[in-house]
């Protein structure tokens, strides 16, 4: 028996046990490797994707529990907020190793969807589940503010 998933607008029939986490379906089965494995226990945020537009830790969502379309960093048609963040990430040269940045950007896109002009405190609140061992936080903060401003002007 297979499970149907919609990922980045494409339909997939997945033949895996329903308890396999979405993360490992995306990475090993579908081959979308932009979503990263960091900890497996929802402690680092590297695996953040959107399910029905809401940021979720894909290491903690079982295949059988995915209840809406999935968007990952790999999408070729990003929503305006995601696109603005990706552009701001490049402008601010945020990434060092870059491994956590897929999750950082997906989390930030969720923040901007609900809070178009986040304060520093709101950024702290929304982003503190996303770990970065290179210490890129100051530029992440600057890039979020910049993307918010540009989205507001658009």
């Amino acid at each position: 028996m297979t499970t149907t998933l919609i990922v980045n607008g494409t339909r997939h029939e997945i033949d895996l046990p329903p308890d396999v986490p979405l993360l490992w379906v995306l990475r090993d089965e579908i081959g979308l490797t932009g979503t990263k494995f960091g900890c497996g226990v929802a402690a680092c945020g590297a695996c953040t994707v959107h399910i029905d537009g809401v940021a979720q830790r894909s290491c903690q969502v079982a295949l059988g529990d995915v209840n809406g379309p999935v968007t990952t960093i790999d999408t070729s048609r990003p929503e305006p907020a995601l696109a603005a963040l990706q552009a701001a990430w490049v402008d601010h040269q945020v990434a060092q190793c870059g491994y956590c940045q897929s999750g950082q950007i997906m989390q930030a896109a969720d923040l901007l969807a609900t809070t178009p002009y986040p304060t520093d405190a709101q950024i702290d609140e929304a982003m503190q589940g996303n770990l970065c061992r290179c210490g890129t936080y100051p530029r992440i903060r600057a890039a979020i503010h910049d993307a918010a401003t540009k989205l507001g002007e658009a």
Binding site: G34, K36, V90, G98
Partner: peptide
């Protein structure tokens, strides 16, 4: 501009694990 930035912002950067 660091050459690795676009790929690290759109998920296409290929780490060993990828």
């Amino acid at each position: 501009p660091r050459l690795d930035q676009p790929a690290k912002a759109n998920g296409s950067a290929r780490f060993g694990i990828d």
